[in-house]
Design a binder for these strands. Sequence first.
RNA 1: GGAGAGUUGGCUGAGCGGUCAAAAGCAGCAGACUGUAAAUCUGCCGGGCCACGCCCUACGGAGGUUCGAAUCCUCCACUCUCCA
Length: 369
Amino acid sequence: MSRLSFKLLHQDGPARRGEITTPHGVIQTPVFMPVGTRASVKSLTTDQLQRLAPEIILNNTYHLMLRPGVDLVEKLGGVHRFMGWDRAVLTDSGGFQLFSLASIRKIREEGVEFRSHIDGSPYFLTPEGSVEIQTRMGVDIAMAFDECPSYGISHAEVEKSMLLTHRWARRSLASRTTSALFGIVQGGIHLDLRKRSVEEISAMDFDGVAIGGVSVGEPKEEMFDVVNYTAPLLPVERPRYLMGVGTPEDLVNGVAAGIDMFDCVMPTRNARNGSLFTSFGKIHIKNAKYAADDGPLDPHCSCVTCTTVSRAYLRHLFVNDEIAASVYNTIHNISFYLDLMKAIRQAIASNSFNSFREEFLSRSSSEKI
RNA sequence: GGAGAGUUGGCUGAGCGGUCAAAAGCAGCAGACUGUAAAUCUGCCGGGCCACGCCCUACGGAGGUUCGAAUCCUCCACUCUCCA
C-alpha cells in the first residue's frame, strides 16, 4: 500500500472536497487537525479525544525528540501506540520550533545546531535527521524540515532562507521511507518568492504541499494576500496544507482559497485561557455577565460541554482554576472547529460554499450574544 | 492591674518627613492568544474632570510640630502578646 493517497471528490469554485487515505484511516477534507504537541492534545485524555473523533492530529518532532526521545517512542511502538491513538498523526518537523526558539539556535547549511530549552543540552538537527525521527515515531504524515523566517526581514534575507528550505526539501525527500512526506512552500510575504517556492516544491515528489511561514506576526491582510495568491498555484492532485492557521474565519477563508488541511493551537490554547468559540462569536467565559447565566455555552452545539453544563458553571470552574474548566472548554472548542469543518464540507458538496461563507462571516463578525 | 506591639486602599501587607493617590501579592474588571518553552500574558483597579495634566477625598479619631506628615508629638478609641 502506498504511504498516502488523495482523492479530489468535488470542487465548488476554488473550494475543494477531498479524501486522504492513510495507514490509520481516511481523512475527509477540508480538515482541521487539533494540535497535540507532546503526543497530547492539551487537557484531554486520549479517550476524550477519541469521542471528539478528529480524523488526524498533530504531534511535534522537536518536543518529542527532547522528551521522551525518539528511541523511547520507537521502542514503545511509535506515537500511536504510545498515546493509545489509532487515527492518523502528522508531525511538524521541528522547523517552526527552531524559529520560535531563535535565541538558542544556529542555522548552517547542514542543519540547525540548537540547545534544548529544557536542559540546555546541545542538539544538531538536519533534514535527514528530522525525517528519520518522524518516520521512526511511525507518523502517517511527516513534514519536510524547513526554515521559517520571521516577519519583517528583508526580501533578500527571505529569499536566502527560502533557497535553504528548498535545498533541505530535496534532502528531506531523499530520506523519505515509510511515512508520507509533505513539502513546505516559504517566501514570506513576497509573492514573487512564493511563486518560485511553489514551483520548486511542487516539482518535487512530495505527498502533499504546505504553505508555511504565515501567521508569524504579519497583518491578516498580508497573510491572505499570500494565501490567496499561493494556494491556487499549488498542485491540484495533492493535498494542500496551510500551516498554523487559524481562527474560524481564517479556516473558512482558507478553504475559499483552495486549502484542504489546517492546524492551529488556537482552539486548545484559547480554551485553556477561557476564550470560547461559538456560533455567534467568541466569548470570554470569565466575564461577570455569565455568573448567573444558566444557559448552554452555545445552544447550537451538541458537544458534551454544551449539553451537560451551563455558562454559569463553566465560569465558576474557570474562575476557580479547576482542571475541569480546561477539559470542558477544550472539548467545546475542538468540537466547534470539527463541526465547522463538517459544515464546510457539506456546503462544498452541495455547491453552496460561497453562500455558506458569506453567511458565516457576517454572522461571526457581528459577535452578538 | 502592669509591660509591650499594633491600627495603611475589598483582603494580606510594604512604607517610617517631601520623589505617596501610597510597593507587592490576592480578589475584582476587561483584553490578547494563529505549524504550543502558554492551565500563559497584558491593561485597569479611591472619586471627578473642558483627563498624557488638574481638582477633591484618603493611611483608626481629634489636636499639634513643620514650608511640607501615612511617616514626628499629645490625647482618645480599638486590637493583639506577655506578666499578675
